[in-house]
Amino acid sequence: MYYKTTGYRIFNVFNIALLIFLSIMCVVPLVHVLAVSFSAKAAADANLVGLWPVQFSLEAYKKTMFNPIFLHSIWISVLRTVIGTAITLMLTFLAAYPLSKDESAFRGRTIYSWLFVFSMVFTGGLVPFYIVIQKLGLIDSFWVLVLPGAVNTFLVILMMNFFRGIPKELEEAAFIDGAGPFRTLFTMYLPISMPSIATITLFSMVFHWNSWFDGLLYLNNSNQFPLATFLQTVIIQQDMSSMSSSPQEMELISQTTVKAAQIFIGAAPILIVYPFLQKFFVKGMTLGSVKE
């Protein structure tokens, strides 16, 4: 066998070393942040922390957890994630079922599918979108975080392809027993669609938790920011003016260790659902691809 030759064995050792090195490079930055967040302020400010906390301290997390603006932004993020995902799930599930029909079974299906696809291919751009949001009265409203992205064509396609894989006989049996499309969808399709519903739920949750630009663009009051937007202004823009707080508080949120703690808390939910993410995203990634 080829893997018993000396040449291949040497290659194999180098290959494994290289790949392990690259994978470590992918997680090292997060480990560093974690180490900084658990370090003492002085050590962190002097850039002494590598991948292990220096003078272990929980100070940064204590300060972060007593910051009401930070806590409130977490609450907004949780709200938008839960409500936004629920709306997206409902819309996607309802829309994908009729779209999974052939044109012969559902006249008009082609027109609908083009409307979905075209919305993905062409956009009006940032400025007209902003003005529409303004005219709809959504500026400074919580709903601006939830409604504009509620329909995602990519997720509809994912769901639609899943429905197409379900044997037609199942549905025919339901029809013969006298169930209408709604009943068929909710009592028969819903229970067997759980794997793809889980995929869509995870996609949508990650999208909402990570979204920051909508908050920055449409919300003027930092009290309404979701966590991602709050982090963007505090850590990236280092804009303390919008936080309307006293100098002590400003110093508090700009400390290296506190920043690191905030970053880590922002990433934590993703890390928690990561085992599921890996499982379902890999499926989702290949689900919508090449078909025979």
Partner: peptide
């Protein structure tokens, strides 16, 4: 079933297109 999605698409995709 498609109506809700269509309302969202109209408001957040097709109306902004008119804004060009």
């Amino acid at each position: 079933m498609l109506l809700p999605s269509m309302i969202f698409l109209l408001l957040f995709s097709y109306v902004p297109m008119a804004g060009i």
